[in-house]
Design a protein around this nucleic acid. Structure first.
Lengths: 202, 202
DNA sequence: TGCAAAACTTGATCCATGTCAAGTACTGAT
DNA sequence: ATCAGTACTTGACATGGATCAAGTTTTGCA
């Protein structure tokens, strides 16, 4: 388990197609997971926050399948796969833990897919904010006052919307008094309303 | 590794919320993975074909998180988790294999999510058919002549569309000479066209 | 074999969101 | 502090797919 040198915004941590030599744990900052489509567009799979893992999909083929690049200065640890396999040999607890983490990632991905299939634009944006809030809270950060490290365009590409629609959704939440928005700084005034709309109680 | 008694269509193999006591491998038939939303609707996560695994998301919390029920008479094997853990203790190859399978499921789920976010209705239906075709071929079945075991409504709920839209998409593929459709029997005449449309070369 | 129910197709209309276009507000460099 | 470039907001309009509503085909049961 090595501490990696901090990455500056825009710098890539892993590239699609590279052999999977390690897993990464983000310690500070945030990152964007995405892949590049045939047309040259970006398909944003999600955002990585402190405490979260990068690289799990690599187990599929031994190569990473998406790019992960820093949105804010990114501190991380590197866990070489060789080392991990040695530890898995000896530690049943770690075996269960890694299965749990993979299961969790899978479950989350499926849940998100369902979200996309069922909700409308406002619902998706609400869900995005509620989810972010929840994950920040889990790390002891404020669930109601936070800074978006990603652009509206990134959010849009993540949710299958256009950046205009994301902007308008935020606009309506602001007007309804659910949020305060100033550029990328968000204050959540009605977490309940967002969570409800985000989980399909539209 | 036990062989399970064949299930009749409509019968449920695993239920959301049940403790995860085993993984299942489908041997014959097909099944639908779904969860029930707050409004009572079905959110279809996907379909399970022979050779594929059921229950992996259970590693997240030790409980299954979605329902899996048979669409056609379903033959399967049951792999108790206790037994699996014992084997993982001794077999490094199996450890890698289970990680590979989880990674694959994760990668697939993410790729599908991207599909949903980027394509329009025809693209999604084309992708669905191309994917099904591919998975059938992998099991040695015909990639061009097959029977859909799921209803249009199931396909729609899987793709985030309405059943009318799915029906219309199939209609246009038929008119353009890409498919022959007779109820649930499909003949693919232009696999190339479907695959292209399905992978965003719209 | 025939009948009823379910599944599917097709058509007409409406609306949410995409698209195009301007204008405004940040941000970072000099 | 100013300026240029980028990010974001807002508006007007177009459109793909949802919705509503018949019809038609298929399926399973008597």
């Amino acid at each position: 388990m090595q501490r990696g040198r901090q990455l500056r915004p825009g710098v890539t941590l892993v590239r699609a197609g590279e052999p999977m030599a390690a897993l990464f744990v983000v310690r500070s900052g945030s990152a964007k997971r995405y892949s590049v489509t045939l047309g040259g567009g970006e398909q944003v799979h999600g955002f990585v926050l402190p405490g979260e893992l990068v690289g799990l999909e690599g187990f599929a083929s031994g190569r990473y399948t998406c790019e992960v690049s820093a949105l804010e200065p990114l501190g991380y640890c590197r866990v070489p796969i060789r080392k991990l396999e040695q530890l898995l040999e000896r530690l049943p607890g770690l075996r269960r833990e890694i299965l749990r983490l993979l299961g969790q990632a899978l479950d989350e991905s499926q849940r998100l897919r369902g979200e996309l299939a069922l909700s409308d634009a406002r619902g998706r944006v609400a869900h995005f904010l509620a989810d972010l809030s929840h994950r920040l809270a889990r790390r002891g950060l404020s669930p109601t006052e936070f800074h978006l490290s990603m652009s509206r365009a990134d959010i849009a590409r993540h949710l299958g919307l256009t950046l205009e629609t994301v902007s308008r959704a935020l606009g309506t939440f602001k007007r309804e008094g659910w949020l305060r928005v100033r550029a990328r700084d968000i204050s959540v005034l009605r977490p309940d309303a967002l969570a409800a709309l985000g989980s399909g109680i539209a």
